[in-house]
Amino acid sequence: MSESKKILIVDDEQDIVETLKFMLEAQGYDCFCAYDGESGLSMAKEVLPDLMILDVMMPKINGYKISRLLKYDNKYKDIPIIMVTARSQEEDKLIGQETGVNEYITKPFELDEVIAKVNEYLA
C-alpha cells in the first residue's frame, strides 16, 4: 500500500484546524498543521505536502502571499491550494485566483464540501 497523502492545514483558528484535521485523518490522509503564515510557509517547504488548505487572514504572512510565493517557485508550484476565508467579496476571490489558488471556499463551509474538493485533487 502506498504511503498516505500529506495535507498541510494553515489557519490561525486552532478549532477549525482541529475539525478539519479530524475529518481528513478519518479519510486516511496524513495531516500537518501550522497556526501562522510564517510557520505555514516553512512547513510547506519542509514537508512538501500533496495539498494545502490555507486561510487568508493570518498573522505574519497572509494566505495570498504564501500562495504567491509557492506558486512562483517551480519546486512548489504544483501543490494544489484550497483557500479558506471568512471574506467573501468577489474581488477577494479574484485575488485568490490570480495568486494561483486552485479552489476558494468561504467560511462557514461544509466539511463535506472541503473533503470532496480534497478528494478531487488527490484522487
Binding site: E13, D15, I16, T19, M23, A26, A86
Partner: peptide, 23 residues
C-alpha cells in the same frame, strides 16, 4: 459578520463530525 463566521465554522464543523458518527 466576518468575525462571526470563524467561530460559526468551528461550531458547524464540530457538529458535523459528531453527526457523522465518526467521533
Amino acid at each position: 459578520s466576518h468575525e462571526l463566521r470563524t467561530p460559526l465554522t468551528a461550531i458547524k464543523n464540530s457538529l458535523e463530525i459528531c453527526l457523522s458518527g465518526k467521533a
